[in-house]
Simulated assay, not measured.
Amino acid sequence: MAELRDILQSHLVDERASWSMGSFGAVAEFHQEKGEYLEADAPGLFARATRRGAIRLNAATVDRIEPVAYETLSPKAHRWSHALALCLPPREAAGNRRDTLAELGSDEEAVRPADRKAVLFDMGLALPQCDFCIRTEDPDLLALLRENAGRSLFDPANPAGGAILKAHPHRVALTRIGRVEVFQKIGGPDTGGVSPPGPHTHLLPQLLKSGRTHSANTPIPDHLVPLGYLHPANPVMDGMGEDTEFDIDDHARFQALYDQFARPDLPLLRKAVLDALGRKLEPAAFTAPSDRFGRATLRLTLRQQHRLAERFASHAYGELVVLWREVFDKVSDTATADDDAPGH
């Protein structure tokens, strides 16, 4: 079985893989483009930076990460998403949970040396497993942030929130397993109301109110907390959520991760579905799981088999899969599906 350290290093140099760190409602994402110039590149130290963003995994904690592979349904019935959640036990995962704006000093751990004199401020979001920060050397913004330190950014009378949105400082998501840094503009009025392509952040107050550590659609065990996510290349869509031709190799690569790191019962369920299809059973002969993640796994398996049947022109098998999908993966049933490309 592949070692997690090797998996992380190999995906760090894969331009099609992306990464995210944060909590439910506050996320920093790192993406690359093919051939994009690297301002820092140290895969052995789990660090990489471009002109638009950066990522570093803490080498000291990599071996303590407990990975959880999972797939999620898309609102579009011909595709799906997948990821490897990078988790720790709750006590190890806990952030500082500051609830007001706080100055943390110079960011001496910044991935790029040029950023290490800039000043970090915790935004005070009180996230369970992430300190969501901004970083700046702008003297005017620094003065305003210092003047309003100790106040909540959610206070309508606090001018710091508006100033941050206007100044577009770097955002830095700090977790116990590492950091993601975003240098691009904050999605909002200056970007046409959408996040820019490449590294970006999402801050959604309505989700923050839930106090959750992650989406209810991800099968993370209760004894673990996800701090970050590796998003390997998806076989049916690109990083912007646009459809692509089905890539059998990308599909196979993630299935290997899924078999190794998914919740143990879900790969077994997938094998049971494939066995039933191989024996040409009618859908009525198969008992759908009662658990939400089991039902999602059934639907995901059928979607993937449909794409495989299309890819290899297996007409009879494809007709059987369609019959199963009419029973178990109704197009109208999208209540448990995730947005493929939030913010874009």
Rank of each mutant, 00 (worst) to 15 (best):
E137F: 09
A252T: 13
A143M: 12
D259E: 12
W19Q: 02
G239R: 08
L207R: 12
P283M: 10
R253M: 11
S314Q: 12
E319T: 12
K166F: 11
P128C: 11
S74T: 03
V27P: 05
F312Q: 07
L142I: 05
R171A: 05
H78V: 14
T244W: 01
H223Y: 11
R146P: 08
V273Q: 02
D190N: 04
S81T: 12
S152T: 03
Y37M: 15
N158T: 08
L4F: 09
A288P: 05
D107A: 14
F246G: 06
G105P: 00
D275W: 09
H168M: 07
S215N: 10
L127M: 11
S74L: 03
H214V: 09
I7D: 02
L101Q: 01
V62D: 01
R270H: 09
P156Y: 07
L73F: 08
G198W: 00
D107Y: 14
F183D: 01
F24Q: 05
T297G: 04
L320T: 06
F254H: 01
L207T: 02
D238P: 01
T50I: 04
K76Y: 15
F24P: 01
D14N: 08
R303A: 03
K209S: 14
D155L: 04
I55F: 01
G150V: 09
H200F: 10
Y37V: 15
G53L: 09
P189C: 11
